[in-house]
Design a protein around this nucleic acid. Structure first.
Ligand SMILES: [Mn+2]
Ligand SMILES: [Mn+2]
Ligand SMILES: [Mn+2]
Ligand SMILES: [Mn+2]
Lengths: 219, 219
DNA sequence: ATATAAATTTAGACATGTCTAAAAATATAT
DNA sequence: ATATATTTTTAGACATGTCTAAATTTATAT
């Protein structure tokens, strides 16, 4: 079995390297986990010894097959629990991450699958992130950002890149939520801010930073 | 905040000393937690320093007010989660303890209260144990055991003392479940085994050890 | 190519919690 | 009252994971 710390490192590596499994640096992991680079070096040696990561000194790390499997299990649990908290316990989407950070380490494969069933085999978590299935298969989202749209293009918000509480609360307040249909009305050269039409009539202007953190699907 | 280990020790002390808060010995705690007496000594010193337990060397320990509060919070979570697992995820009552042993350490007072609401403010867990309310109030059960009944007395099963999987599975197989109405037909002098009538017609014989581990209410 | 900067690793310390073996205190028996 | 057994504590080791400071390697700039 893996310790809580190991699971957190594996998850961080997966989140930094994605499905293509590109190498990630010690420093990037340290930032992601909010720890020191020296701690990361120590842990990478351990993960390498346990064949959960491939690691050579000074050359970054990638997950092995079994490391990726562990990471995806943790992510599956995290996202299922977040959805449980939102759908069943009526939490808001900006309130669940820290709790899920704890729940993701509960060990009981049977419970996870029953939770999955209880939630009706959901495909996405409250932030639009795909939930890996019990075999660790995950739908990769083509990463189209709102900032990538061209003028007059129509799109629908399908996910957030930054899922910090402050960003989620901002989205809440301007009603730029998952599922929202929008049209890119204009892009202002000066600061790359964007004006949008939301739904039938609402018009808002958002910063480029906001647009860079929203995944959209262009149907 | 308290560590997972601290919470487990506080819970153990509470479970050994009960509501009257009698002193508990190092050895008893060690047995309860399945650890060594030397580890218990270490931890009792720590709990004492944190004012969670009163402890003098060689004289056993009791919980302080704040230690008891922590213990009851952990127990509340344990029992709510067990009920969730049984009522919502369709686990059987003999399958949930180990999972709840992990879930009881998740920190989020808001989540606990929402879980409580989601389960409709239940009073008892799947084993008949009372669930402390959000203020830490717990209904103490008068401890009447099936083995205490006299001949022809009528009673209803309301709880189990031993809630090991093997005992629960035995009860399942003889249909001696929570809520079962019964009459004590006979007590055999030889080994103190008991014959019972369950419900309208079923008759079974149980050992005294079984009877000593079943709480009943005599209405 | 060499100097400087940035990233990474190592060394050593610390915190938490566990264990075994030995010492000390308490309980029990004659 | 004294010997013996039991319980409890202490001492020292180990495992995990974190940190700071120093050393080393790699990247960047001139
Ligand atoms: Mn999250
Ligand atoms: Mn985590
Ligand atoms: Mn239990
Ligand atoms: Mn526990």
């Amino acid at each position: 079995m893996n310790t809580l710390a190991e699971e957190n490192y594996l998850k961080a590596i997966y989140q930094l390297s994605g499905e293509n499994n590109t190498g990630v640096s010690t420093n990037d992991i340290a930032k992601q986990i909010k720890t020191k680079a020296s701690s990361v070096s120590d842990m990478l040696r351990k993960l390498s010894n346990k064949r959960l990561a491939d690691y050579e000194k000074y050359k970054g790390a990638t997950l092995t097959k079994s490391g990726k499997k562990v990471a995806l299990k943790v992510i599956r649990k995290h996202r299922l629990w977040e959805l449980f908290l939102v759908n069943k316990l009526d939490f808001k989407w900006d309130e669940v991450h820290e709790i899920a950070e704890q729940l993701e380490h509960i060990v009981s494969p049977e419970m996870v699958n029953r939770l999955d069933k209880f939630l009706d085999y959901p495909k996405y978590d409250p932030h639009g992130d795909p939930i890996p299935d019990k075999n660790g298969n995950i739908r990769v989202r083509k990463e189209v950002f709102l900032s990538d749209l061209s003028k007059n293009q129509i799109a629908r918000v399908v996910g957030v890149k930054d899922s910090s509480a402050s960003f989620l609360q901002y989205l809440e307040s301007v009603k730029l939520l998952l599922g929202t249909e929008l049209v890119l009305l204009n892009r202002y050269k000066f600061d790359n801010s964007l004006s949008l039409k939301l739904g039938a009539k609402k018009e808002i202007t958002i910063s480029n930073k906001v647009a860079q953190n929203l995944y959209v699907s262009t149907t």
